[in-house]
Amino acid sequence: MTTTEPVTETAVSLSIDGATVEVPKGSSVLDACNAAGVDTPTLCYAENLTPVNACRVCVVEQEGSRTLIPSCSRQAEDGMEIKTDSERVRHSRKMVLEFLGSGVDLSQAPDLQQWSEVYGADPERYGPSAAKIEEEVRIQDELYIRDYDKCVLCYKCVEACGDDAQHTFAIAVAGRGFDARIRTEFDTSLPDSACVYCGNCVAVCPTNALQFKTEFDLRSAANWRPEEQSVTRTVCSYCGVGCNLELHVQDETIVKVTSPNDHSVTSGHLCIKGRFGWSYVHGE
């Protein structure tokens, strides 16, 4: 489904680490970095969500700008001179990763761990007294769990639940500062909330703070083996929209269903039936 009529594209030209790249007008600086072959860490960014530029791990240095700029949300402009590996950029990225690592459990966020290594982030140096997010795992149903110890407050789940995808608005950021948390109203349980269990929040979570219950159970049983899983793309059977599914299969059993972000029909988003209505395949 194409949502807008195609428009004639014009290009802008900018410099990324000294190399000139051309990208279509309207592209982000991040797009330009990608076009230049520069790998950029991202966390709160997702191609199927509006950038909130909250995590600041993708910051780059723009010639003439007092502060660093978030590459995910800043539009590329003609003549920009961008540095992605300056001392300032490296320092801010390191600190952001370190700040996160010092307060949040990143054990199931391999990308962030890898970037932390790249930038030499040392979360341990804040010592054992450094404040951490400490919350009980919320298991309130058989479809997914919420483990906010792992939450980096990237806003993605809120966006996916809200007007970027589902328009259900079951969750929002509540509180302020370090005490801000993703919450339903008054932390009411998910089954009692507006949640319609589309699982779109789980799909966009970058740290596994939100997990499908199947994955959580397999992990708890030390039987989650992503390296052995196959991923097959197919089409959901439950209605005529044509959402694409990615079936994650381990030991000939579906263990998780996602949807490709780059597919035009629903850009990675599903409903409860497409996301969870597969148990009958295995005769349940």
Binding site: R56, V57, F99, Y126, V152, L153, G177, F178, D179, A180
Partner: peptide, 24 residues
């Protein structure tokens, strides 16, 4: 620390770590 809105990581956590250095 109290007044940081919490939106961006540098401020949300940075203000806490700064306060902790002073407390400690």
């Amino acid at each position: 620390r109290n007044e940081s809105c919490g939106q961006c990581v540098p401020c949300r956590v940075g203000t806490v770590r700064q306060h902790e250095v002073l407390l400690n």
